[in-house]
Amino acid sequence: MSTTTVRLHELAHARTGDKGNRINISLIPYRPELFEILQQQVTPERVLKLFAHRGADHVERFDLPNLKAMNFVIDNALEGGVNGSLNLDGHGKSLSFLLLSLTVDVPPSLVTG
């Protein structure tokens, strides 16, 4: 089957929350039928690689098949946490859009918000 490569941003939405030096980013596909494809492709390993430059050292993914959503818990990506970070965005609130910049391969019929 032919696939096309698109950014997650085309397919899903996301929100970051923070507690200390740990953030969580939800990943919610616009279409429920994308859930399993994202499960296969947006692995904790890929997400860890995406945040490695920030010092992230562990990623755990929790799946919610009922809500057709995923939750990534990322450790130590805030370079010192909300209080210690020198980043303009010490909470890492903008990082949901870093996750959404990751690309995946999907059937063209599933692209369109």
């Binding site: 996301a14 929350g17 923070d18 507690k19 969580n24 929790f62 919610l64 959503a69």
Partner: peptide, 13 residues
């Protein structure tokens, strides 16, 4: 609702 339900949540269970 989905975005907020997972906001600042770690293990959803």
């Amino acid at each position: 609702i989905k975005e907020q339900i997972l906001y600042e949540m770690h293990d959803p269970a």
